[in-house]
Write a protein that binds this DNA or RNA. Structure first.
Length: 574
DNA sequence: GTAGGGTTAG
């Protein structure tokens, strides 16, 4: 009876002091000797993050069972005290206690969080030794551990040999692929359904993320229907993920519809929507939403301000951006970090205020990183300031001598000025240092299928038609004044060859295919590119949107470009 | 006493 009343009392505990009181009473009335009571007390301490109290109690326990040990291992793991987590687990093995399916996931999670693949593999051996390979909890955590330690092949191998997999294990695997190969995530989602599973909200968040990564609009619509069709309500996390998905698929209006439909919103949801407006070049909408957020009593955080400053910079709202930068710490208590400074350098740089941008960098009291300098270098490129570019490049290459992007950006700047000697110098340096330029490629979704193009690509079965379409489009554009801007070809080759290379850029091939495969003029042509869209292709898209009367939506590595009637939403400012 | 979920800078 005393035991039961002690347990009942425990469940009414609201804070650590109440637990200590129950603990003291249990010691006095002897119920502490009951393992169930002692374990419960231990668990409550851990839940309230009172690890010292837990450890003291653990130490004074007359007997312990596997539950006792697993609560301790779990407590250390959750608190991030990895050394004590490992030490306690070693103690379990040393005392010849069989580790169970409760303890192992905790210690595996510790390996995952600290990316300790060596220890992770050792624990995997322990799992095999004790015959726990069939346990869902253990295996799901192992799969997650391998993936987070960047050995996705081992994660997949283990996943594939699991005889029975539950929804959580599938979710873990789909979530892991969202970071590496979002396309494979969606393949797994198809397989999951084929095997008769019905996804829950958590599983759908990982699928939604994969669609966002891919920018796969048709899949996004399907996923939305699946969520509604299976009666999954939009909680704050799933809703926010869907805002991000629609926005990254180029449908900022659909993103807003989801946002408006959400009953519960928090600072993350608001920030996601502000960010979405930002990379779609809708700076004014981002600002309006920020003010609406404030009037709803939500306090902005670091990320809200990054999104807001980004929105200002990409919409040319220089004064507004500077105003927010000035007030974020003073009025909202959010201290600017390097990301905020990067946005402001970009903001000033785009406005041609390079001296001010440089001065800001020189006087800031925050550690500088390569992205900050890259922002300034990008501005040097746009405004053709080679002298400053040289200086910036020095700082940048000191920080990141192995980043191919920097070499490419520098080559771009020198190529623009026709300094082919310098371009060659950097190309040689890249070869010497074994750095490879990331190849550019564009993909387009037609009838639920994704087609991918690289420069000069002829691998598509309709390649002949695509090239014919491209030639005919270019002819039409030339008639209204299109002149290929060969400054965007870095190689020092003949003008005619440069033209040839420009004409077969992956963006142009994908658009030519889009014109064939999406004949309905009302449907926009949506393409995605892994790098930033080149200046000539940008002009090409503007003119196609006018001459061919087609709306084109391009997702590049940084933002979206909406081309309509000869103009782009970025205002030629990207 | 157990495993899976959202936003951000070049």
């Amino acid at each position: 009876m005393a035991t039961e009343s002690c347990l009942r009392l425990l469940y009414t505990c609201r804070n650590i002091f109440h637990i200590r009181q129950v603990h003291a009473n249990a010691l006095i009335n002897g119920t502490f000797n009951n393992l169930i009571v002692a374990n419960k007390l231990l668990h409550f301490y851990v839940q309230h993050k009172a690890i010292n109290d837990a450890y003291y109690l653990f130490d004074e326990m007359p007997t312990r069972d596997p539950t006792t040990w697993s609560i301790m291992v779990g407590g250390f793991s959750k608190l991030g005290d990895y050394n004590n987590c490992y030490a306690t687990f070693r103690e379990i093995l040393r005392c010849n206690i069989t580790p169970d399916n409760y303890t192992l996931p905790f210690v595996i999670r510790a390996c995952r969080d600290r990316k300790d693949i060596q220890m992770g593999r050792m624990i995997h051996d322990v799992v095999l030794k004790y015959g726990l390979v069939l346990d869902h909890f253990v295996c799901a955590t192992l799969v997650d551990m391998y993936a987070k330690c960047a050995v996705i092949e081992d994660a997949r191998k283990l996943f594939d040999v699991m005889v029975s997999k539950d929804l959580v294990t599938w979710t873990v695997m789909i979530g892991c692929y969202a970071d590496y190969d979002a396309y494979e995530s969606l393949v797994l989602f198809d397989r999951l359904r084929e095997e008769g599973f019905v996804s829950d909200k958590v599983a759908m968040v990982t699928v939604v993320n994969a669609c966002a990564k891919l920018g796969a609009m048709h899949r996004a619509r399907f996923v939305n229907e699946y969520i509604c069709g299976n009666g999954l309500s939009l909680d704050v996390i799933l809703g926010t993920a869907m805002i991000d998905m629609y926005a990254k698929c180029g449908c900022v209006d659909s993103a807003r519809e989801v946002f408006d439909r959400m009953k519960e919103k928090n600072v993350i949801s608001w920030s996601a929507m502000i960010a979405a407006y930002g990379y779609h070049g809708k700076g004014k909408e981002a600002l309006d939403l920020f003010h609406m957020m404030l009037s709803c009593g939500i306090s902005p955080n670091r990320i809200t301000f990054v999104s807001l400053l980004y929105a200002c910079s990409h919409s040319g709202l220089t004064d507004e951006g500077l105003h927010f930068f000035d007030s974020m710490w003073r009025d909202y208590g959010v201290r600017p970090d390097v990301k905020h400074y990067t946005c402001v350098v970009d903001l000033l740089g785009r406005a041609g205020r390079l001296d001010e941008a440089l001065k800001l960098i020189e006087t800031m009291n925050v550690e500088k990183d390569e992205r900050l300098w890259s922002a300034l270098l990008g501005a040097c490129r746009v405004h053709g300031n080679m002298e400053l570019a040289g200086k910036v490049a020095e700082s940048l290459l000191e920080l990141q001598p192995k980043n191919p992007g920097i070499y490419v950006l520098l080559s771009n700047i020198y190529a623009k000025a026709g300094k082919w000697e310098k371009v060659g110098e950097f190309r040689d340096l890249m070869t010497q240092r074994k750095l490879k330029k990331v190849p550019g490629w564009t993909w387009i979704e037609v009838d639920n299928k994704t087609y991918q193009f690289s420069v000069g690509d002829r691998s598509h079965p309709q390649s002949k038609e695509i090239y014919e379409m491209l030639t005919s489009v270019i002819k039409k554009l030339e008639m209204v004044g299109y002149v290929p801007d060969t400054e965007f070809v870095l190689q020092d080759v003949e003008e005619e060859v440069k033209k040839e290379m420009l004409y077969t850029h992956s963006e142009k091939l994908a658009i030519a295919f889009g014109l064939i495969a999406i004949p309905n003029k009302g449907d926009p042509i949506r393409i995605s590119k892994n790098l930033r869209v080149c200046g000539d292709c940008h002009t090409f898209c503007k003119m196609v949107s006018d001459v061919m009367k087609r709306s084109i939506i391009v997702r590049d590595a940084n933002r979206f470009h909406h081309f309509n009637e000869g103009a782009c939403s970025c205002g030629d400012y990207w």
